[in-house]
Design a protein around this nucleic acid. Sequence first.
DNA 1: CCGCATCCAGATCGATACTG
DNA 2: CAGTATCGATCTGGATGCGG
Lengths: 117, 117
Amino acid sequence: MTETCQDDELRAVLRGLLTTIGDKWTLAVVATLVGGAQRFTAIQRETDGISHRMLAKTLRDLERDGLVSRTAHAETPPRVEYALTPLGRTLLDPVDGLIRWVDEHGQAVLRNRATAG
Amino acid sequence: MTETCQDDELRAVLRGLLTTIGDKWTLAVVATLVGGAQRFTAIQRETDGISHRMLAKTLRDLERDGLVSRTAHAETPPRVEYALTPLGRTLLDPVDGLIRWVDEHGQAVLRNRATAG
DNA sequence: CCGCATCCAGATCGATACTG
DNA sequence: CAGTATCGATCTGGATGCGG
């Protein structure tokens, strides 16, 4: 495994990661899970305007990447809880950096957008 | 201007920003511009596989947000140079945090994807 | 050389309905 | 309650051609 290959792969992962967390709902869902494990319906209620389908997709993607864990309890009625994995929690740090940037410079971006149309 | 309104707007900006920098090519273009101002064609040559149209769109979006400046020189042949603005450079910091995260945990994500995908 | 408009194929998303 | 499949509307991205 060469370094260039790794570099290429890392770039791909970076883009994929940005695409993932940049997806319309991912961040909101993650924000909902910061406080602790949540059930499917609870997440949907917390996340304003998300459709059933998109929540399912978002959670599956996050689970696929190992950022969110899915625990199905064999009960009636069925109960499934989602939570951030340790790996998922490590992501909160750099994301927080982005949030701070928006907090600091977001207004400037808005102003630019308003000016430039 | 209420705080809740600002909070909503900031969330919108955050999502918009993540969408922007998560867009397929934005990061590669920004990476090209880190070293200094570049011409349209030079950026296209540096950024492997990007189409004319997408580069134009990417640059326009970045310019709209005030992250990239566009300087047209009135010459023949026409020459237009793009460069990161000071605001654009402040964004490099949090993005670097993300890159470090990928550097550190990207392999784990890939492993998870391979297992679950 | 630079940028935009048009056209077209593929991806995405929301609503709905159906299974366990 | 949790999750998947289908369908239709919308959006995106690439190729091409034209104007500055």
